[in-house]
Design a protein around this nucleic acid. Sequence first.
DNA 1: TTTCCTCATCTGGTATACCAAAAATTGTTG
DNA 2: CAACAATTTTTGGTATACCAGATGAGGAAA
Lengths: 227, 227
Amino acid sequence: MSDSPAEPTLAEQIAAQLRRDILRGKLPPDTAIKERDNAAELGVSRTPMREAIRILAQEGLVVLRPSRSPIVARPTVKEVHDQVVVLLALEKLSAQIACERATEQDLARLAELNEKIAEAYDQVDALDLFEMDMAFHRLIAESAHNAALAETHHAYLARLWRARFLSATMRRNRERVVSHHGAIMEALRARDPVAVDAALDQHLSNLAEDISAAIEAENAAAVRAGG
Amino acid sequence: MSDSPAEPTLAEQIAAQLRRDILRGKLPPDTAIKERDNAAELGVSRTPMREAIRILAQEGLVVLRPSRSPIVARPTVKEVHDQVVVLLALEKLSAQIACERATEQDLARLAELNEKIAEAYDQVDALDLFEMDMAFHRLIAESAHNAALAETHHAYLARLWRARFLSATMRRNRERVVSHHGAIMEALRARDPVAVDAALDQHLSNLAEDISAAIEAENAAAVRAGG
DNA sequence: TTTCCTCATCTGGTATACCAAAAATTGTTG
DNA sequence: CAACAATTTTTGGTATACCAGATGAGGAAA
């Protein structure tokens, strides 16, 4: 699942481009991704475009239908909610294991990032803050030193990027995030599984609701626009 | 992730073929899968072979290396163990949710399959029994009615197919599996999350050890053979 | 007017050819 | 004999062309 960081292949570049467009909303749900037209538009052949579409399909961002153009996925509230449930479970498992296995370096990195977030939370724009939040959670997953777990967790984090971003824009109390992160940090540092579990529950419990509200709002808007 | 059940594409057929060969051991770990030679051998072009290899890479059965032939993966004991940990967590989460959400039909199907296994456990061959066991666990995951969870669980189940098969062949006490399944069944029917958790722990706790032993044995054999 | 059949068109799937980069091998030179 | 450099081979990546099936529109018949 790890790409060669050296020189991304054309298909990966295309996938990255489309991914950005989808996540930023430039390609809204239900938009058709015709591999012919789209490839011509970008001046590439169908082959890498095809592969890029497969990558995004694998990530759940587009859906493939037999004998039909692939379209940008329009996740239902239930689907997103289900994914959040899994994400939460994976992250809690990670944290549990991390209580035993996290190295001092892991904790140091986590603390450093947490510090950075605490300093910047009211100064940087939402997107940057969001990236840092994502990195924080990824670090937790990686602190369990379980490659499969980290990979799957990361996949869900990526898949929920848009939903989480939508929810982040509507949530204005950033202070809470910072305090939650602090609680998670402390629990991890104390290597207290129970406290970590509680802290994560606290931090992510509202996420599902926020995301649900955001998705519903977007879908309602789409319906109004005649989507 | 769901295929069109109608008419599998060539790439999917090739992937299925290779998957079987790998899981059955016909293509042992470290075997190179040259997309050129292999395609010519099967009488197909590189395109579907390439896609098939990607599919298997996604499943973790083969590893892609830059500027090198893809090779059949040789999972380390730690990797497999890590995956088992995740599988167990996913299955326990499924069971927890299933305690609330499982329909009577779900439980009926589960009971039916359990019955079938109990009747056949000492009569059918290991492979058939294994398939039934896999179906049993998949039913548990599906009883949570969380598509994302079921999908990820199934992916891990498939990824661990070979390891689980290896462990199954070396374990001769099939009765235990049956009794464990019965315990899981009863706990689910009672919709008792604690009991389900305990039953699953009981059932899957030895799996990691068994698998580890099997993997180590295979790797040792490979070393002896000059792999 | 409605329904059904036909045909043009669009879709993804596959085959083939070409290219550039990276190994591996071989030859040369110290 | 060893180390280095050039060539040859193998690899994956990309472009292009062709094919079969499905879709959907449009016309003909009831």
